[in-house]
Amino acid sequence: MGREVGPRVAARFGRSLLELGGNNATIVAPSADLDLAIQGIVFAAAGTAGQRCTTLRRLIVHRDIADTLIERLTAAYHRLPIGDPFDETPLVGPLITTTALDAMTGALTRVQSQGGKILAGGNRRLTEAAPSAAYTEPVLVRVDEQTDVVREETFAPILYVMTYDTLDEAIALHNDVPQGLSSSIFTRDQQEAEIFLSAAGSDCGIANVNIGTSGAEIGGAFGGEKDTGGGRESGSDAWKAYMRSATNTINYSTELALAQGVSFL
């Protein structure tokens, strides 16, 4: 849609502020506080049933801690209460349409054909109580590489988990997607955090440390890079995108001082 809107607006010399989604990732370093990481990951990946532009969709974990983190994440996914969002107990509601559920099912079929392994979730829920609604379990998928389906944004609660050995490798995996909205790293190593926030690190418009990809952007400049469209909403400079600037010079005298002292009289 952005590729349709952008040229049409540009053709009349208008301006557009496009926020076109994201395929957001979190890096979990060996020094990470895993208790903190688990909370941030589950909230960002399963919150709003994965239907948020800043939803966590890719998890890049250091190989040394991968088994421990995955085991804890799998247990957390099995405990997620799913149900009517108007009730107090559920944390995960339905997908917005059955079409969204079909897209989720299609992505899972593809990733499994490319070697991915479902670790938790994926079962349809509340089919009798709410047959016309698209209730489903958030899904945790282990992948060995970042295949084409992983590089796409599926607007559903699917979290792809992959491993890395060096920070450079993790950042390369992180940036190797068309989208560039939100990102985060969990680490207690200040140097790693600074690298991630630098020009050599995340190529997203939002980069967080020790918090997930969603939930911290309120009040900050919101927007992304690459296929996310560019431009910023919110934040101290966002108003400029909605305004036209004008330069005004007002002469209150009865004389006109010309540049370089030029005189035409």
Rank of each mutant, 00 (worst) to 15 (best):
Glu4Ile: 13
Glu4Tyr: 10
Val9Leu: 03
Glu19Gly: 10
Ala37Glu: 13
Ile41Cys: 01
Ala44Asp: 08
Ala45Asn: 11
Gly47Gln: 12
Gly47Leu: 07
Ala49Gly: 04
Cys53Trp: 09
Thr54Glu: 10
Leu59Asn: 05
His62Trp: 06
Asp64Trp: 01
Ala66Ile: 04
Thr68Ala: 08
Leu69Cys: 04
Arg72Leu: 05
Leu73Asp: 10
Ala76Ser: 15
Tyr77Ile: 04
Leu80Gly: 04
Leu80Cys: 08
Asp87Phe: 02
Glu88Gly: 04
Leu91Tyr: 14
Gly93Trp: 12
Leu95Ile: 05
Thr98Lys: 15
Met104Thr: 08
Thr109Ile: 07
Val111Gln: 14
Gln114His: 14
Lys117Asp: 11
Lys117Pro: 00
Gly121Val: 02
Tyr135Asn: 06
Tyr135Pro: 05
Tyr135Thr: 13
Arg142Gln: 14
Val143Asp: 14
Glu145Arg: 13
Val149Pro: 02
Val149Asn: 03
Val150Lys: 00
Val150Met: 01
Thr154Lys: 03
Phe155Pro: 05
Phe155Lys: 11
Ala156Pro: 07
Pro157Ile: 10
Ile158Leu: 10
Ile158His: 04
Leu159Arg: 01
Val161Gln: 06
Met162Val: 08
Asp168Asn: 10
Glu169Met: 00
Ala170Asn: 09
Val177Thr: 14
Pro178His: 06
Gln179His: 11
Gln179Met: 10
Gln179Gly: 00
Leu181Tyr: 09
Ser184Ala: 15
Ile185Met: 12
Asp189His: 06
Gln190Tyr: 07
Gln191Trp: 05
Glu192Arg: 08
Phe196Glu: 02
Ala200Lys: 13
Ala200Met: 12
Ser202Met: 03
Asp203Ile: 00
Gly205Asn: 12
Asn208Gln: 14
Val209Arg: 06
Gly212Gln: 11
Thr213Glu: 13
Glu217Tyr: 02
Phe222Arg: 09
Gly224Val: 03
Asp227Cys: 00
Glu233His: 12
Glu233Ser: 08
Trp239Asp: 15
Tyr242Trp: 11
Ser245Gly: 04
Asn248Leu: 11
Thr249Cys: 01
Ile250Gln: 07
Asn251Ala: 01
Glu255Cys: 01
Leu258Asp: 07
